[in-house]
Write a protein that binds this DNA or RNA. Structure first.
Lengths: 355, 355
DNA sequence: CTGAAAGCGCTAACAC
DNA sequence: GTGTTAGCGCTTTCAG
């Protein structure tokens, strides 16, 4: 017969220490009302028998699990995984555990079982770390959203009634396109992300707005949409160069697609940045080592996620302590432009002139 | 005064339906011994009051949480995040939830609190998805490792006494170097990963072995170590080319560093693959769009992770059902070689000859 | 300062 | 088929 390892529980500790379970409870919760000797003795017994309080039993009675549910999609991509890393780090700091659920697709809409699973495990809050794509926010109007726990969203169109944290994609797009204009490029094309994505739409709108404000006309042939992948970027740049031959520069909605753009330009014997300038978006670590190195918009998903968790904790604490409820708000973090070789046209002209 | 949302519990359902809690329990567990009418009535009440069984209470009594703890590090890298994705997918399929913990560093050795946290939450098993780096396995000899739950490891030196799943890094390295020989390269250098990493050592050993078997001599100046990053690859390739000028090809321990190698070769005006051949490792999606496209070793961390979870589930089930305990074993999955332009020397010679 | 009793939400074991 | 009793491991009253 196999000996089943039975973990010590509070009763065992109590009986070995010759006290009641309440006293043990007081010791493990660091309550003041225990005599020093008793406390010491109990602590020794705890150590000796290797007692570990059950978070489960605690959660059950205190109605507080110190656990956050996280819903995410596309973990194999750098954005979501950086975000998850930020969530993990911030949750750790705040003393919360993480229950993780990865959606098989960004636009999964069978959401109810996920909430059920989290709520049945008594999470204290849910972080919705899935970007807004297509109709994947439809369920927000459903009734079951009147949850007993707070919800914080990452990366979606700001709304009055929810707490949300995101990078300001529109601003990022403006930085990119303005920079191309500053470098003297005149015919600026755009390779967009899939326009079901809020982020892709924001970046594209920025491209349109900056060009329009600068007196340029926008035509449909000036842009093409990809699906974020390098493979789609390769297709997109071919198409774009055919339909917009005068193009002298391009704002690409992410670095992966920008990589393919560089590849295609190299292959055609076009020089970057002299003949064509390229700006990406994301600043993935590799982009500094593309050929040539890529000018791109830096966004920090790790930071976004940390802020989201901090906001979540505030909301939770407010509810628990019966304070003023925290008002829902949208927080937009500012991206920055990282200038590298792929747009360094002025510098080159300067150098040639000076040489 | 704020109305606290109180969720319906099994008692509420029982009293509304006019049955005992036991009957409700039977209904939610789909037990056969309930009359159809009673079952129907109870189900209606459940629906009406929005009752959701507490997984917490269930776990407490059944000593089974259907939850797996996952420890991981370096989520922002493609390997770990793909692995996590595989874990999530396999766990989902098996009906397990995931409790996630990200280590701040790969060689974190303060491990005990992590186990404590998982065990206090009654996880049914722990997946250790942190690569073997330096001394980060020391704790395996500690006493507290005699856990009451099974443990499955990813990516470490195989051992008799543990269950472990990994890619066969040694084989991958052999594929890479053999391919360079096949293409007629004679002076094959190596840019290794940080040698504290088991994976890096395996890949390097393969490089040494294949060359030695082919009658080549290995010198210390034939290789340099990086730290996996593109930035370190840039430094490494400079150094390597200085100390090994005859080098006509290089096996680089990952794609990120290989990217920098291509960058450096381009910058020096050397042609790839004519002057220098380059093979990477990982097959990150971008590598097909490097300039030139990169020959590399394909490894599937997602798959590794799925297998690990499946193994874990087997172990758990065996223990629960008092079956023969599953013997610990090491599973090595085979990588494959993806041939692209960066090593296509023979083809070029052939084409030139044929033209 | 300490303990006894009650109960968080659920299920196993047994009775009827 | 269905209900009763006991209890998973802990904390919250409330006595003393």
């Amino acid at each position: 017969m196999r000996q089943k390892t039975v973990r010590a529980n509070i009763k065992d500790v109590a009986s070995v220490a010759g006290v009641s379970t309440q006293t043990v409870s007081r010791v493990i919760n660091e309550r003041p009302d225990v005599s020093p000797e008793t406390r010491k003795r109990v602590k020794e017994v705890i150590e000796k028998v290797g007692y570990r309080p059950s978070a489960l039993a605690r959660s059950l009675i205190s109605q507080r699990s110190y656990t956050l549910g996280v819903v995410i999609a596309g973990l194999k991509y750098i954005g979501p995984s950086s975000a998850l890393s930020g969530i993990a780090s911030a949750a750790e700091e705040a003393g919360y555990a993480l229950l993780l659920k990865e959606l098989p697709r960004f636009d999964t809409d069978d959401i109810e079982p996920i909430f059920q699973a989290f709520l049945s495990r008594h999470v204290d809050g849910i972080i919705w770390a899935v970007s807004e794509v297509g109709e994947n926010r439809k369920w927000m109007n459903n009734s079951f959203t009147n949850l007993e726990v707070p919800l914080v969203y990452l990366t979606m169109e700001p709304r009055e009634d929810v707490t949300m944290v995101s990078v300001n994609n529109y601003l990022g797009g403006r930085l990119a396109v303005s920079h191309l204009l500053d470098q003297g490029y005149k015919n600026i094309g755009h390779i967009a992300g899939p326009l079901e994505w809020w982020e892709a739409r924001q970046r594209m709108k920025a491209w349109k707005d900056v060009l329009t404000e600068a007196g340029h006309e926008i035509h449909d042939k000036h842009w093409v949409a990809g699906n974020w992948s390098s493979a789609s970027g390769a297709v997109a740049v071919e198409k774009l160069m055919n339909q917009y031959p005068e193009m002298d520069s391009v704002f690409v909605a992410n670095d992966q697609m920008a990589l393919s753009v560089l590849h295609a330009l190299n292959q055609k014997g076009l020089r970057v940045p002299e003949d064509v300038g390229v700006v990406g978006f994301d600043n993935i670590p590799e982009s500094a080592f593309f050929w040539p190195s890529l000018t791109t918009v830096q966004q920090d998903q790790y930071r976004v996620a940390k802020v989201a968790v901090e906001e979540m904790i505030k909301v939770i604490e407010a509810v628990r302590n019966d304070l003023e409820p925290v008002q829902p708000r949208s927080i937009l973090l500012e991206p920055t432009l990282v200038v590298r070789r792929s747009t360094a046209r002025l510098e080159i002209i300067k150098n040639k002139g000076g040489g």
